[in-house]
Write a protein that binds this DNA or RNA. Structure first.
Lengths: 202, 202, 202, 202
DNA sequence: CATGAATGAGGATTCATTCAT
DNA sequence: AATGAATGAATCCTCATTCAT
């Protein structure tokens, strides 16, 4: 019983060490050797828990996956039941932000590995697809309920997920919007909802 | 003179070989050894032209850089001189697309290396920043001239560049929109200009 | 008492697992790790019974050693007491064969480890030496009793043991003589006794 | 041109180093690391010439293969053309011995790897098969020409090759017959030809 | 007695880089 | 300018062995 605990602890040490090395050198620049060194465990111990750096990355991403999925699922379900569409949207977006902030290191890892090397891509596409699917479902419901114009919701899901990703990068990677990120969310929603063109235009 | 020509030719062989290996294994998975092997040149020859894989990547990106910059500069300069704002925008966007298509392999390389490992990031941020700056300048002029609402043009530049990147990825990486990419561009502009919300909403 | 039984059972599990791995990968290719894995016991348990793969090999060979020795001893003792030398020889050889067949896996192990790597050689020479000594004793008695020509019985013991080993290999390793092995034994005796040359030769 | 020479020299260094390590530790006990160490070359250099210890073994065995094959082929061709069968046989056997003596180290290697681990076996069976086939052809011709009795020549080829191998082992591995090996060859032929049983036996 | 997590030495393999030709 | 053999550092990975439970 105690032994299992110890094993779990060692595994956690590896994950934490990997997270640090990933942050420093990036995923591609991370060797098992370095993770081992940072973890202060023996070389062989690594292989008792993982078979490759890839598997460690997976384990780290999995941690965030569940949280994200829960929030996105909630968004879909509730999104349509209320009158104030935009307000609702803002609330949900902000709670999603808090998930990201709780897993800040992992999200950075996700942002920097997404869409990169072919080998890694497979491990991160689920995130993109989950985001896009969630957004699209919301949009489809918006269209069906008459709140939104009829337009290509798939294209829109790409625009929104791409925009979100970029803003997220600016926030977590480059430290922009550190304080007023929530205000920016409302502004984003405004832009997507009503556009940037002045109405009295030809 | 003959020798210079020969040297240039060898350099080109390396670049072409590297492009192929990048496409197959991704940037991080590419070793000098493999580029050399694909180029059918001698190991030592590589070092007469480049000092690292990183430099090869740079050389490849540089090729596209000039073209992109020219187009973006054109966009800025001309964007305001005409009445039909949206039409103008579409035209410019489409010509930018053709640049991307001409350098398809390199753009894919750019898409998969952007925002990734710290070491590589430095070599690709210029692209993002150039795009965002260009977009922002256009938006600022639009605001100044009264065509666009007053809003955070920096935020908008992030949204647009992120959205564009995602659509570009879907197009070049995953083969979506292979035929109707131009139609989609107009749709994107429509969304950003007028939003997706139906006007008569409470 | 219960515990001793249990211990013996565990030891047997290890031996059986090792036998299988030996058959698959050969002695040199066998690691403790693999034996442990096949035995489904814990890594540490192995060391309670053996200290190395070498010791396991020894234990396996020992099993066959006693049986072989008994038969060979019998051969020596009885070989001279009867008139019909060749018939007697055949009978003894065939009973030896049945010993080999009962320990088929172990004999294969013996055949493939004999005369190989220096470290292993020491564990298998006893077999060769036992065989050769037994044969030689028989031959010496044959010479002494006037049944056999006077010749180098040591050399002959090498020829016979070598020949036997090869036929054994063909039988157990390569599946030849699966059915008529006993007939072949008589043929072998005939050859060694009377040679292959036609008598009326110059 | 000079460079090729150098490469060949390095290859030879590796082969010589390997030969020494094989002799000391046996094939199975030989690691690339040790061969490299003994050769005083860099670790990476090994891989420019061979991919595994197995390949080195092959290269060493190949050297002897050609010589052996030539002698054995000669034996077959000439064996029947002369009257004095036994004398002829002795002469050929002795010249084969000189081949073995010239490649003493490699023959020892061959003797200790033959019939051993499955992986290695494939690389040495050719030797056994070549020997047995050569012997059998000779025997078949002897039978056909009426010099030899009608018997199972395949079985006999096993007996002779096995016997030879054992005598060879005694000679090269254990240092027996260092001086009178040639006399022993004649004795062996005598035994195989005429048997050991005294003629006036029932 | 049995377990299995942890260890770290050692061997395999790759790779960027140098240098004599 | 081009070649490619050689280098050795760095990484990957396995294995025998220990030890607390």
């Amino acid at each position: 019983m105690r032994q299992e605990k110890r094993k779990e602890l060692t595994r956690e040490k590896i994950l934490q060490a990997a997270k640090q090395v990933f942050a420093q050198k990036g995923y591609a620049g991370t060797s098992i050797a370095e993770v081992v060194k940072k973890s202060k465990l023996a070389r062989g111990t690594f292989y008792l828990h993982f078979q490759s750096v890839e598997q460690v990355l997976n384990a780290l991403l999995q941690e965030i996956f569940i949280d994200i999925q829960r929030y996105l699922t909630d968004m879909q379900v509730e999104a349509l039941d209320h009158k104030n569409f935009k307000l609702q949207l803002g609330t949900l977006a902000k709670s999603l932000l808090s998930v990201f902030q709780n897993h800040k290191d992992t999200v950075i890892l996700l942002l920097t590995t997404m869409n990169s090397e072919p080998k890694i891509r497979t491990q991160t596409v689920w995130f993109q697809e989950l985001m896009q699917a969630s957004i699209r479902v919301m949009l489809d419901r918006g269209v069906a309920s008459g709140r939104l114009k009829k337009f290509d919701t798939e294209l829109m899901s790409f625009l929104v997920s791409g925009g979100l990703r970029e803003v997220l990068s600016q926030w977590l990677l480059y430290g922009r919007y550190n304080k007023d990120i929530e205000a920016k969310v409302d502004e984003m929603i405004g832009i997507y909802m009503n556009g940037v063109e002045l109405a009295d235009q030809d």
